[in-house]
């Protein structure tokens, strides 16, 4: 008889203590977490990339190839791109600049809506994955298709010596051709004969 009530009170006491600890934890969680979790979420990545970009003063000078109105050859245009952590990231920038077009009077070989989805480099091949706009936004003839493809291939291989061949993917997968002409099923070597001397 005497044991029972004592057990009950013990249990109650234990429960109360647990509740207090729990409430404490909850308060601690909200009080401490709220302010701090947001700040690092915003700051961490941007601070890093900005920091690194700024810490990398050597912006890279690159040669881009565009089409000229005078002939159907590819003509070089130099500009600077911010240095990046990897060759793949830099190639992404370079192809992005190619899509933006010439700062002079040269003709952009790729549709302006095209986005670079991803670039990765495996051995000596650079894989450039472009959005479907590269196919959908232009009706290619042989000349414009050759220009679009070799502007990308020649630009990348000219600026990244480790890359010997370039494979162009569309929306993440292999595409036979952009518009029914040039074979994209294998990585392409640069074509020096298409470049103006």
């Amino acid at each position: 008889m005497t044991k029972k009530p004592s057990r009950l009170t013990n249990r109650r006491l234990l429960l109360a203590a647990l509740l207090v600890v729990l409430a404490g934890l909850v308060i601690l969680f909200f009080a401490s977490g709220g302010g701090e979790t947001i700040r690092p979420m915003r700051e961490a990545p941007s601070a890093k990339s900005h920091g690194e970009a700024k810490a990398r003063p050597e912006a890279k000078k690159v040669t881009l190839f565009f089409v000229s109105e005078r002939d159907s050859l590819l003509h070089p245009e130099t500009r600077e791109i911010p240095g990046a952590a990897s060759a793949a990231e830099e190639i992404e920038h370079v192809v992005g600049e190619l899509i933006k077009g010439s700062r002079g009077d040269l003709v952009a070989p790729l549709p302006a809506e095209t986005q670079v989805r991803r670039v990765f480099v495996a051995k000596d091949v650079a894989y450039v994955d472009l959005s479907r706009d590269v196919v959908d936004r232009f009706a290619y003839g042989s000349s414009s298709e050759l220009a679009a493809i070799y502007a990308v291939v020649n630009t990348i291989t000219a600026n990244f010596k480790a890359v010997k061949r370039v494979a162009i993917l569309v929306e993440g997968s292999e595409k036979e051709t952009l518009g029914g002409h040039i074979d994209l099923s294998r990585p392409l070597l640069p074509e020096p004969t298409l470049v103006a001397k």
Binding site: S72, Y140, S142, S143, S144
Partner: peptide
């Protein structure tokens, strides 16, 4: 048989292609 297309409006002329291998 094809007809050509360019982004340059004044691109003109006739050309004939045969395959290039682009081989490793």
């Amino acid at each position: 048989i094809h007809t050509n297309g360019s982004r340059r409006k004044n691109a003109q002329g006739s050309e004939t292609f045969f395959l290039s291998l682009n081989a490793t």
